[in-house]
Structure formats: C-alpha cells, structure tokens
C-alpha cells in the first residue's frame, strides 16, 4: 500500500480517530461508548497508520510498547479496584469524589474510580490488540 494519497491521508485520519477514541471513552458512562469501544477505535487508528506507513513507523508513533501499555492498563484497572479498600469498601466498589459540591446535582464534576477503571480497560484493549496486530504485521 504505497499510495501517497493513502499515506498522507492516513496521518490526518489517525489523528481524528485517536481524538474520537478518547471522546468515545469519556462519554461512555452516559452514552454509547466506553473503554472497550474507545480502545478498539484507538487500536484501529494505529493499525491504519501501520498499513499506511509500516508497523515500525506505527510503533514509533505509539512511543511505548503495546504489551507494556496493556500491562499498565491492567495495573490502572486493578488500582481502581484497590482504592476501595482505603475507604473500607469491598473490592472494586466505585468511589466518587465530588468537586465543588457534595452530590451529583451540585458538583461541577467528579473524580471517580469508575472512570479510572474504564481508562484501564481502554489501555488494555488498545495495547492488547495492537500487540497482536503488530506481531502479525511483522511476522507474517
């Protein structure tokens, strides 16, 4: 796939897809989306890039190894579960901290372990699928 148009277009497409993947991740709690979907879109973004410019280029663009990313994601997800122990709740109980108020109605926004967990899912899916895809790209 050595088309110049595809290569040039891919860069813009990848950027858009990545932003879109984050958008899907963040809106997931209230509208269709979430870590799984966001992670899949992010993975597809890098796979498009790898198809256009080669997987070496895509690896460079990712900066970190996809396997490492997936492991970090798993760690983040686990951390989101462990936080509940600090507050004396059972494992993986969602923890909410309201910024600028004391409930959902009054707070400006919230910091919560649920989103942290979803970010972990996002990273695992992104890293896991990319490590598979890159391996296939390179070894087959």
């Amino acid at each position: 796939m050595n088309s110049i148009i595809f290569t040039a277009g891919a860069r813009i497409l990848v950027a858009l897809l990545l932003v879109f993947s984050l958008f899907m991740l963040l809106r997931g709690h209230h509208l269709p989306g979430g870590g799984f979907i966001g992670g899949l879109i992010g993975a597809i973004a890098f796979i498009v890039y790898a198809l256009a410019c080669g997987s070496a280029e895509a690896r460079t663009a990712l900066r970190v190894s996809p396997e490492g990313l997936a492991m970090v994601g798993l760690g983040v997800a686990l951390l989101a579960g462990l936080v509940s122990f600090v507050f004396g709740d059972p494992f993986f109980t969602g923890q909410w901290y309201w910024v600028g108020g004391d409930s959902y109605e009054t707070a400006a926004f919230s910091i919560n372990s649920v989103l942290v967990f979803d970010i972990g899912v996002y990273l695992v899916v992104l890293g896991g699928i990319l490590s598979i895809a890159f391996a296939f790209e390179e070894e087959t």
Binding site: V125, G128, I132, F136, T140
Partner: peptide, 20 residues
C-alpha cells in the same frame, strides 16, 4: 456480549497465530 466479542477476538487472534 460486549466483553464476549472482545474476548472472542482475542481467542481468534491466538488461534490464528497458532495456525500460522
């Protein structure tokens, strides 16, 4: 089903790698 789809993909990728 949502998680099953993603895991199904993982299974497929693994089997494909095995086949390859």
């Amino acid at each position: 089903v949502l998680t099953a789809i993603v895991i199904g993909f993982g299974l497929l990728a693994f089997t494909l790698a095995l086949a390859f």
